[in-house]
C-alpha cells in the first residue's frame, strides 16, 4: 500500500518560496517521475515527502494517515540517494541489513531478508565486500537492496542514475522498471533527464519554479503539452517554437513543431539554409536558418544528404502543429 496525497504543500527557506503550493495525489503502485530543470524544486518536494524537510504549510498523508509532522523513520518510506549514501564502514551485508537492525529484527530474520534481496539484485557474491570495492552499478544495487528489504510503502529515488555512465544508466533504468513491475510498490523518482521520465514513468509530474506545469502519462505530455514549458521540456531534440506573423496566421501567439514532425518539401513551406547537419546513421539532425521562422531543428531520415550551406524548404506535417496563446498555454 502506498497512496500519497499532498494538499497545498508549501515550502519556503526563509523569505524564498521554493514550493509555493502543490496539490498532488500519487496512487498506490504508481511509478511517478518528478521532472524539471535544476532548481525547480523537484528534489525538495521529494525530501518533503521523505520527511527530511518540514513542510512550511499544507498536509501530507500516506494511505490516509497524516504524516505531515512525522519523522522520516516513522513514514515507512525508503529512499535511494543520488550518491547512494552507502555506509562506507559496513560490508554490503551490513548495509542492506541496517534498516532491519534499526527495526529490531532478529539476526536470523535479517540474514534471510538480506540473502533474498541479494539474490534478486545479483549481489550474493559481494555481500562481504565494502562499498569502496564495488563498481558504480553494484553500489546502486546495494542502495536499492537497502531500500527493498524494508518493504516500504513507497520508494523514493533522488536522481539515482546521474553518477553512472551512459551505458550503465540504460541498464539500471531497465532494472528499476523491472523491479517496479515485480514489486508493484509505489515509486517516486526524481530526475532532470526527460528520457528517464518518458521511459520509466506511469505518470510524469513536470515541475518548474516550484509549480506543477502538467501531470500526465508520458504520451499525454508528448502529444498534448499543456504549455510551452512542457512542450519544450518533453521531447528530444526540443520542440521548435515559432513566434510572430507565422504564428499569428494560425491565430496563436506561438506555434510549436517537433523536429521529427518537420518535413522537407520541394515547394512552398519555409525556405532556409542548413547551418549544421549531424549524421547519426539512423537519423540526420539539421539545424536550419529559415528566412521567416527563425532557426529550426529538423529530424530527417538517415538517407538525407544535406550539408552546410544547402538550401531546404521545411513544412510541418499535417496535424502536428501545437498552438499556444500569449500566456504560454496550449490553445
Amino acid at each position: 500500500m502506498g497512496k500519497i496525497v499532498l494538499k497545498s504543500v508549501r515550502k519556503s527557506f526563509g523569505e524564498v518560496d521554493v514550493i509555493p503550493g502543490i496539490d498532488l495525489t500519487i496512487e498506490d503502485g504508481e511509478f511517478v517521475v518528478f521532472v524539471g530543470p535544476s532548481g525547480c524544486g523537484k528534489s525538495t518536494l521529494l525530501r518533503l515527502i521523505a520527511g527530511l524537510e518540514d513542510v512550511t504549510a499544507g498536509t501530507m498523508a500516506i494511505d490516509g494517515r497524516d504524516v505531515t509532522a512525522a519523522a522520516p523513520s516513522e513514514r515507512g518510506l525508503a529512499m535511494v540517494f543520488q550518491s547512494y549514501a552507502l555506509y562506507p564502514h559496513m560490508t554490503v551485508r551490513k548495509n542492506i541489513a541496517f534498516p532491519l537492525k534499526m527495526a529490531g529484527l532478529s539476526q536470523a530474520d535479517q540474514d534471510a531478508k538480506v540473502t533474498a534481496a541479494a539474490k534478486v539484485l545479483n549481489l550474493t557474491n559481494y555481500l562481504e565486500r565494502r562499498p569502496g570495492q564495488l563498481s558504480g552499478g553494484q553500489r546502486q544495487r546495494v542502495a536499492i537492496g537497502r531500500a527493498i528489504v524494508r518493504e516500504p510503502s513507497a520508494f523514493l529515488f533522488d536522481e539515482p542514475l546521474s553518477n553512472l555512465d551512459a551505458a550503465l544508466r540504460v541498464t539500471m533504468r531497465q532494472e528499476i522498471t523491472e523491479l517496479h513491475q515485480s514489486l508493484k510498490t509505489t515509486m517516486i523518482y526524481v530526475t532532470h533527464d526527460q528520457v528517464e521520465a518518458m521511459t520509466m514513468a506511469d505518470k510524469i509530474v513536470v515541475l518548474n519554479a516550484g509549480h506543477i506545469e502538467q501531470v500526465g502519462s508520458p504520451l499525454e505530455l508528448y502529444n498534448t503539452p499543456a504549455n510551452t514549458f512542457v512542450a519544450g521540456f518533453i521531447g528530444s531534440p526540443k520542440m521548435n517554437l515559432i513566434e510572430g506573423p507565422l504564428a499569428a496566421e494560425q491565430g496563436a501567439h506561438a506555434i510549436g513543431v517537433r523536429p521529427e514532425h518537420m518535413g522537407i518539401v520541394s515547394e512552398g513551406g519555409w525556405e532556409g539554409k542548413v547551418l549544421l547537419s549531424e549524421h547519426l546513421g539512423s537519423d540526420t539532425f539539421l539545424k536550419v536558418q529559415t528566412v521567416n521562422a527563425g532557426t529550426l531543428t529538423v529530424r530527417a531520415g538517415g538517407e538525407v544528404r544535406l550539408s552546410h550551406g544547402d538550401t531546404v524548404r521545411l513544412a510541418p506535417l499535417p496535424g502536428k502543429t501545437h498552438r499556444f496563446g500569449s500566456n504560454g498555454l496550449a490553445l
Binding site: L77, F81, A85, H89
Partner: peptide, 24 residues
Amino acid sequence: EILEAARMDGAGLWNEVVYVLAPM
C-alpha cells in the same frame, strides 16, 4: 546524505551517531 539515509532507514539520533557517524 549518509546521515539522511540512516534516518530514512529508521535510525534515531542516537543510532545515527553511534552506528554511522562515529565509525565513519
